[in-house]
């Protein structure tokens, strides 16, 4: 029983973290067709803001991190990505790779590469069905899941969410219906990035922070996005759950390294036999622009 409970808690914790990442990455991917390879580095940036502003109380500090991350995302979308969409996904992928380098090196220049850490606002552990579990983990997981539920609510139950889904589904049609695509693209990128920053800020007290921290989160988050059912915003959530479950089960059964190898092998097989499970949405307006240009 205890084993089951701790396994469930472990899956839930990891799911909370990857759900934020996958949702953010999935939104950006679905709306902009951008594979955001700097996503892990935004997680790192969120964590380092928490470290750098240690004097500020925890909750306001998280909010500051979100605002800073949003502002950065705004600048990146406006100055870097906007002219690159028409060139296809590799151009934006490479651009984001460059952003990742700059983020890592900036963190390195400002904070150095000696591991750093952030004090946890809540210490101790509480008993969950007979299993002692660190309180802060439960808090962080709960916050993550609440945010995820709130996002789902916004996306599926509000007017804004409907516009969002409309633009992701068919930008031209949405545009004809009076939903301006530019602000929606911007909003999606900023919002997706803020989710990464939030994940990093929440995760910070559990981690040894180095500028290279984020690289390890990229592949699982990417897989989570791609494993999910196409065309649905809940897809990445499902993917995050698959990743959390698969990762924890394998790591429970095998040695860490074998688990890592099996994890990637399982994903390869999953993707090879079900390529339809992936959603590589080339933004419709790109196609439209390309087709229109010669006319």
């Amino acid at each position: 029983m205890e084993a089951v409970v701790s396994f469930a808690l472990a899956v839930l914790t990891l799911f909370g973290f990857y759900a934020l990442l996958a949702l953010g990455m999935g939104l950006i991917f679905g709306q902009l067709g951008v594979v955001n390879v700097a996503f892990g580095d935004f997680v790192m940036a969120g964590a380092f803001v928490m470290y750098g502003l240690e004097a500020v109380p925890f909750v306001p500090r998280v909010l500051i991190a979100l605002v800073l991350g949003g502002a950065l995302a705004w600048a990146i979308e406006k100055l870097l990505l906007r002219p690159l969409y028409v060139q296809g996904f590799l151009a934006t992928l490479l651009a984001m790779w460059g952003v990742g380098i700059v983020l890592r090196q900036t963190a390195d220049a400002v904070f150095g590469s000696t591991p750093a850490s952030v004090a946890s606002p809540v210490t101790g552990s509480i008993s969950v069905l007979g299993v002692q579990y660190p309180t802060y983990r439960l808090v962080a997981t709960t916050v993550s899941l609440v945010v995820v539920v709130a996002i789902l609510f916004v996306v599926y139950r509000t007017d804004f969410g409907m516009r969002l889904r409309a633009t992701i589904d068919n930008r031209e049609m949405a545009s004809l219906l009076g939903i301006p695509p530019r602000p929606m693209i911007m909003a999606t990128f900023v919002f997706g990035t803020v989710l990464a920053v939030l994940a990093g800020a929440l995760q910070a007290p559990m981690l040894g922070l180095t500028p290279h921290l984020g690289v390890a989160f990229l592949a699982p988050a990417f897989f989570a996005v791609l494993v999910g059912r196409p065309g649905s915003l809940a897809g990445p959530l499902f993917g995050a759950f698959v990743v959390a479950l698969l990762s924890n089960s394998l790591r429970g059964l095998f040695s860490e390294t074998t688990a890592t190898l099996l994890f990637y092998a399982a994903l390869i097989v999953l993707i090879a036999i079900r390529p339809q499970g992936l959603d590589w949405k080339r933004p419709q307006w790109t196609t439209a622009l390309l087709a229109r240009r010669p006319a």
Binding site: A10, T13, L14, L207, A216, R251, G252, S255, E256, T257
Partner: peptide, 17 residues
């Protein structure tokens, strides 16, 4: 005896073992 790849952020399964 447990080993985890460099860059491992989540040590929960290892600590559990």
């Amino acid at each position: 005896e447990e080993y985890a790849p460099l860059g491992t952020a989540d040590w929960q399964p290892v600590i559990g073992k």
